[in-house]
Design a protein around this nucleic acid. Structure first.
Lengths: 174, 174
DNA sequence: ACCAACCCTTACGTGCACGTGAGGGTTAGG
DNA sequence: CCTAACCCTCACGTGCACGTAAGGGTTGGT
C-alpha cells in the first residue's frame, strides 16, 4: 500500500472521469482481460500503440487504450481475425474522407451481419438435430442392459424412429 | 469459452452416392468432400480404419466408411475437435452396455446443445450490435465530405446518438 | 510391356493467436 | 541501498487440422 495518501489533483474538467494515471502494460492487460503477450502482439501488428515510453522504455498507455483493446477483443469475438482488424483499422486511417471510411467499414459490417445471420440459421438446424438425437438417446436407458450396443441401435424401443439420427448412426459405422 | 465462431456447413451423413464396391482412399475422399491427407489423419487418430488393405497395401474401405467420415465432418461442423470425437468414439466402444454408452453421449450432446443455445444468444446480441453500428454509420455519407474523420465522430448528424456504438468508437481510440 | 493415375510412408511446413522461457533492466516501497 | 515485482527484447514452442513434397510402389487399361 502507498505510504502517501493520494494528493487530490485540482480538477480542470468539470465533468467526467479523473485524469487517469498512465497505465503500465500489465495493468492494461488486467483491465482488458488480456495477457501482456497479447498486447505486445497487437502492437507488433500495429493495432495498439503506447502513447509514450517511460524513461526505462516501459510502455505507457492512457485510458483510451482500454477502449481500444476491448474493441479489438469485441471484433475478435465477432469472428474477425487480427489481420481483418488490422485491415479495417488501416482502411479507416488511410481513407481520405469520413464518408469514405464509413462506407468501407459499413461494407465489412454488413457482410459480417449476413454471416452472423446465416450462422444463426445453421445453429438453429444444429440445435434441432441435437434435440432429435437426444430424444432418440433418451429412450435407450430403457433398453435391456444385457443387450449389446450393436443390437441397441435397432432395438424395438426405437421403432418410432425410421432410422437413428445421423449423429447417432455414425457411432456404429466403423 | 470458445470465442471463434465455427463455420457450419450443412452436411448429410447418409445421403449422396453409395457404392458397394470397396473404395480406395481417393474415392472415399471425393465422396466425403475431404482430402486424402485428412482421411490419413483420421486413421492416425484411430477415428477411421480401412476394412482391409489390398495386395499392394492400398487402403480399402466399404460404404460404411462414407457414413463414418461424413459423421466425423458433421461433428466437426458442430464445433467438436477431432480429439473430442476420438474421445466420444472411444467411450462408445469401451462402454460395457448400450445404456451406458448412450448416457455418455447424451451428456456430451446435452452440453453441446447448451453451448449452441448460448452461442445463438451471443449471436443475437452481436447481430443487434452490428445493426446499431450500421445504423450509426449510415448517417455518415451525409456528412460534409470535407470534414475530417475526427470531426465526424461527433458531427451533428449523430446527435440522435448519445455516443457512437462501441464498434465504431474503437476506431478513434488510439 | 508401358504409362498415367493412383497409392504408400515419412516428415517437414502453414496460419493463427498467442505461450513460454532466457537473460537482462526498471521501479517503488521499505 | 535492497528487494520484489514489474518490465524489456528476442526467439523458439504450442495446438489444431491439415498442406505439401520427396521418393518411392501399385493398378488398370491399351
Amino acid at each position: 500500500m502507498p505510504t502517501q495518501l493520494p494528493v487530490l489533483q485540482p480538477q480542470t474538467v468539470r465533468k467526467g472521469p479523473v485524469v487517469e494515471r498512465p497505465l503500465k502494460v500489465g495493468e492494461l492487460a488486467k483491465l482488458c482481460g488480456k495477457t501482456v503477450r497479447a498486447l505486445h502482439l497487437y502492437e507488433e501488428m500495429g493495432l495498439l500503440v503506447p502513447t509514450q515510453r517511460s524513461k526505462g522504455r516501459y510502455r505507457m498507455y492512457d485510458a483510451d487504450a482500454v477502449m481500444r483493446v476491448r474493441w479489438i477483443a469485441k471484433l475478435q469475438d465477432m469472428g474477425f481475425s487480427l489481420q481483418d482488424i488490422r485491415t479495417m483499422s488501416q482502411q479507416w486511417e488511410q481513407s481520405g474522407s469520413a464518408p469514405d471510411a464509413m462506407a468501407k467499414v459499413q461494407a465489412l459490417f454488413e457482410q459480417k451481419l449476413a454471416e452472423t445471420q446465416a450462422q444463426m440459421q445453421r445453429l438453429r438446424m444444429l440445435s434441432a438435430e441435437l434435440q432429435a438425437s437426444l430424444e432418440y438417446l433418451r429412450t435407450c436407458p430403457t433398453c435391456d442392459p444385457n443387450r449389446l450396443i450393436e443390437a441397441c441401435s435397432a432395438c424395438e424401443e426405437h421403432q418410432a424412429f425410421e432410422d437413428p439420427p445421423d449423429l447417432v448412426a455414425g457411432f456404429s459405422a466403423h
